[in-house]
């Protein structure tokens, strides 16, 4: 555990909690892509199956349980409790365009051809692109609530911090996981355009809106 890994995890946790609180406080999930949230729930579920097979640390186990619990709580909010506020008409990204290639790739490029390992690989690849329905929704409506942009910022920051964590681990532990690193790079790059808008607009007190 190093400072980048810890702040990365906390940033991830902050993102998840910001989103839950936003929905709860405003009693609305307007502007939130339910499809991205489904993908994140699939990501956590397929990756953390090792909760059943191996114990790493109390920190590791509790964070996994919290992430999974929050992911399903978010889904419950979007598709059940606050379903009336869900903006499904704008949430039109075709997730099969992500699921099929990602599923295929996880069978082809993995560390070990075993069910749990393939599911882990699938979750890493899927996570790298799971935000696309949300970004697509924002590009379609041309705007995002400021609180939603805070959510996206922390979610993007988390994987960027993991990149520094992997550099650290490579130098000090000789550890590297090529699958996680490449997917993490892709994931971070997808946020770059958003980071630019966040810094140049949201941090200066303006609402994030895209030119028509």
């Amino acid at each position: 555990m190093n400072v980048f890994r810890l702040t990365g995890d906390l940033s991830h946790l902050a993102a998840i909690i910001i989103l839950l609180l936003k929905i709860w406080k405003t009693r609305s999930c307007a502007g939130i892509s339910g499809k991205s949230q489904i993908l994140f729930a699939v990501v956590f579920t397929s990756r953390y199956l090792d909760l059943l097979t191996s114990f790493i640390s109390l920190y590791n186990t509790s964070m996994k349980v919290i992430y999974i619990g929050c992911a399903y709580a978010t889904l419950y909010f979007v598709y059940m409790k606050f379903k009336a506020t869900y903006d499904g008409n704008h949430d039109t990204f075709r997730v099969e365009f992500l699921l099929v290639p990602v599923g295929g790739l996880s069978f082809l490029v993995n560390h070990d051809f075993s069910p749990l390992e393939i599911l882990w690989t699938f979750s890493i690849y899927l996570e790298s692109v799971a935000i696309l329905p949300q970004l697509f929704m924002i590009s379609k409506t041309g705007e995002a609530e400021t609180i939603t942009t805070h959510y996206l910022f922390f979610l993007g920051l988390y994987r960027a911090l993991y990149l520094f964590n992997w550099i650290w681990r490579f130098y000090f532990e000789g550890f590297f996981d090529m699958i996680a690193i490449v997917a993490g790079l892709v994931q971070t790059i997808l946020y770059c355009d958003f980071f630019y808008l966040y810094i140049t607009k949201v941090l200066k007190g303006k609402k994030l809106s895209l030119p028509a």
Partner: peptide, 10 residues
């Protein structure tokens, strides 16, 4: 044995 690749991260 699962976890031989040390998936100790989240």
């Amino acid at each position: 044995e699962y976890n031989v690749y040390g998936h100790d991260e989240l």
